[in-house]
Amino acid sequence: MSSPQSTRRIKVLVAKLGIDGHDRGAKVIARALKDAGFEVVYTGIRQSPEQVALAAIQEDVDVIGVSILSGAHMHHMEKLMEKLREYGAEDIPVVLGGTIPIPDIEPLKRMGIREVFLPGTSLRYIIEVVRRLAEEKRAREAETLL
């Protein structure tokens, strides 16, 4: 086999972090990513930061997409990033979507969240960002293998 990195389908974890039940966005995104040819694992609702981090590692995903509509994103995202570091999985890029006040975007990016999608973001754009982040991650992995 020549290059498993390039032939393996991009794999994404779509996660509902926290205890809010608004799963419409997460499901629509999961479906759109699947239709775009990605492999998608959807966690279902009420996941803790630890559960999400472990799922991402076990499923060996390229990108983690988190959906939060409870306003508790600052708290949960900080915890999730901590858990990923703790498990040595900080290389997995994380994106976030939901009802996020604009002033929170900068601090979230400082935490290491790669992109924040507000309501109304087009599926096309989300797919594009996820693809780019996944490809960058694979390129980094390929480099370390050399």
């Binding site: 926290g18 205890i19 409870s70 306003g71 508790a72 600052m74 708290h75 949960h76 915890k79």
Partner: peptide, 10 residues
């Protein structure tokens, strides 16, 4: 523990 960070927000 599940309530952490969620109290009083919505």
């Amino acid at each position: 523990p599940m309530a952490e960070g969620e109290v009083g927000i919505v």
